[in-house]
Amino acid sequence: MRQYFGRKLFIYGLTFFVAVTVNWLIPRFMPGDPVASMVARASISQPEAVAAMQAYYTDLFGLDQSLISQYFNFWAALVTGDFGISIWAYPKPVADVILGAVPYTLGLMIPAILLSWLVGNWAGALAARRKLLDNTVLPVGYILTATPYMWIAILLCWGFGVVLGVLPVAGGYSFALQPSWSWEFIGSLAQHWVLPFASLFLVALGGWAIGMRNMIIYELEADYSNYLAALGAPHRLIRRYAFRNAVLPQITGLALQLGVLVAGALVTEIVFSYPGIGSLILKAIQNKDFFLIQGTFLFIVLGVLIANFIIDVVYVVVDPRTRAGMAGAST
């Protein structure tokens, strides 16, 4: 078990290292003078921002320093939580801007991921080997999983927000309100949360249902299922075993899907102008706020790594074989 976690942590550490290095390298890959080209391409309204940007880039790229020390400086800044100053939200530090958006993104993603996983697995397990259900769950699942996240978001936004007018279509809370711990504000938060949550939930649902259906069918045809059936074990017992064994790869699947789910959350936020990381990225791109883009990149990587680790821990709890000192999980 220690070896299992050791391997995982090593991979995650390596991944983080690679991500930071990529983050550092990319601006330096750009042809020409990076400082000049970025300042030129940034559309900044405030003159102080231009000056700050110039100073920051010059400092960061530190043309008077060697590449090695530039690289170490980059790490040093990172460790102290210094991601630079945002151009778009000048003069706020990038870290603060991102931390302000993180709760919204997490509040959207965590319930959507967990619920879609639970409901999807349940629907998939029901569908397996039941002709009638299978014929509905499967096509619906494939359509959902093939739908781009933003399109479902747009359709829901248009249908419920514009045509029916029953739910708000933009923002994280009513523009008339200031964030506070009042019931009014919380109610407004909840109202604005429903549609983005629903779009994320729906698309993710399809993938889990299909995955579970296929896994269960595979498990029901496994040798141990046949053996139990030959010994007259009731369907109930066989299905219980199959379900349990089919859930295990679905947990691993959750880890594999994180990247896709994050991407889905980002575009969904953009559709609903939901004040999370996704909208931040859109603003950053529109304003050529490179510090902000690089900062969000690292935050996303970090978040995904942490989530991966949590899933690993859950897997060890659920799959007894990993605890018995076996290499039960290959991922």
């Binding site: 496994a222 141990y224 053996y227 010994l231 075993y241 074989r321």
Partner: peptide
């Protein structure tokens, strides 16, 4: 009762 061909994988692995 039966002893199957696939004894190696006849028992639930989990």
């Amino acid at each position: 009762s039966i002893i199957p061909q696939y004894s190696m994988s006849a028992m639930n692995p989990t």
